[in-house]
Amino acid sequence: MLLIRCPYCGERPEVEFHCGGEAHIARPETPTETSDADWAGFLYYRTNPRGVHAERWVHNHGCGRWFNALRDTVSDRFVTTYEMGTPRPEAGSDVTRA
């Protein structure tokens, strides 16, 4: 079980959290003009990296707030967490794997 640092509550066990999948996936802004292929990209295609992954988490058995996190998918180590709505930080690029 992972130990996750909620930016608002501090370190808590993984069972208090729910993972909301990959972060920074923007819904197409002009739905009627978006092609089927682009919809498929938005709905179904994910980065799925072997390395640092930007993802959304919610501390649903704690403060209830969402936040973003960078996590290494090989070691499961959290690199950093950051606020929703802010861009992906540079941190963690040094541990990117092939």
Binding site: M1, L2, H18, C19, E22, H53, E55, T73, V74, D76
Partner: peptide
């Protein structure tokens, strides 16, 4: 597990 991982292990829960 609930998250993407290549760790070939999972949570005890």
């Amino acid at each position: 597990d609930q998250y993407v991982s290549y760790s070939q292990q999972g949570g005890i829960q």
